[in-house]
Design a protein around this nucleic acid. Structure first.
Lengths: 205, 205
DNA sequence: GTCTATATGTTGATAGAC
DNA sequence: GTCTATCAACATATAGAC
């Protein structure tokens, strides 16, 4: 699957044109400056929608952010579900997912930075941590099924998920921090090699 | 090495008593509520130092935070250097470092959360990203030396660092997010197993 | 539903006594 | 160096016309 834009990841079809404009403007502001550095007038400028209209559609700044995060998580979840459905075995699905994560990082580094770093709980205290939500649950279930298939060793489920997806997430983080010499997706082969090695290691360790 | 408290990690010996109290108070506030949710009166209450005195010692809130982050990074760096110096081979040093990271996570989860999640650039735009600083540089150099020793496979340096430390960092993140069933340090053996497998995998992959 | 203009409340920072 | 009291600026949220 090719990389998607931030707009495509927010599935905004059910919303009114104004709400779409507000959420996209807010997303751009939050991505670039962070939630706390974003002032309502910034969202007004970015969205082309007036203060009054923003407050007509959203109770306050916090609820606006909440709606945005919800849409984003749902969008990620749907994109991942579609991607997974296009492949057969758990290991193929894992590979496809990693390719997609790396490609998305190259295409939308600031969006990825927002997702990876975001301490959403700092501005949304009621939000559960990202890693307990659908996208990370999907990763875990893929790993568990690969383990059942015998494609991954019989290690603890949390550790195995961390070992399969942790390196990719670190590379993504390095990429968005600007300390990666090459585009993120060029590391996919080496990352797959580390996963291969998890499975094929000699048993007597 | 046993776990250290937040206070021990900030090497504050060279500072005046008042500056120490201010930095520790601020650290507790930032850890618990984040930088933007912390008001000056919160730091006054947490440190027992008055507003005027705080502004006598630090130009403004941002410079206070900057001083704190610098101290914290230096403290981490020193603790890691000491730990590394107590072991011989790169692989032993890597193992010791991972044990220490996990133990610190159990002892000071909120401090670790602050370090891991902190988008310090959101409130300190001039700060380089954490992963380019001494602590992460140390991780990379350990991995490179282990690779030279033949203890790790000849993969890309960034990928190898991500493969060695990424899983541990993911487990730490899961721990501070409260989604880890057992204390973080109980996963060390399984984490070491994943690193072992990197090295001992059959060559013809 | 959308807009402009404005009020309300907070907050970072300062002034000035001790 | 430390403190209390206060200011000035600003950002959120609202009021009310269209």
């Amino acid at each position: 699957m090719s990389a998607q834009s931030a707009e495509q990841l927010l599935h905004l079809e059910t919303l009114s044109e104004t709400e779409r404009k507000i959420l996209l403007g807010a997303l751009h502001c939050f991505i670039q400056q962070g939630y706390f550095n974003t002032r309502i007038p910034d969202i007004v400028a970015a969205s082309g929608v007036s203060t009054g209209s923003i407050y007509h559609h959203f109770k306050d700044k916090q609820h606006l952010a909440e709606a945005l995060i919800t849409q984003l998580i749902n969008g990620l979840d749907q994109a991942m579900a579609k991607l997974i459905s296009q492949h057969e075995t758990p290991m193929e699905q894992i590979h496809a997912l990693i390719e997609w994560m790396l490609t998305l990082t190259d295409a939308e580094p600031e969006l990825v930075s927002f997702i990876l770093y975001a301490r959403h709980r700092e501005f949304l205290p009621h939000q559960p941590p990202l890693c307990t939500q659908q996208p990370f649950e999907k990763m875990r279930s893929l790993v568990v099924r690969a383990r059942e298939n015998g494609d991954l060793p019989p290690l603890d489920e949390m550790v195995l998920t961390a070992a399969v997806f942790g390196p990719t997430l670190r590379i993504m983080q390095a990429a968005v921090d600007g300390v990666l010499p090459r585009p993120a997706h060029t590391y996919s082969a080496a990352l797959f090699a580390t996963i291969e090695r998890l499975s094929t290691a000699s048993a007597e360790v």
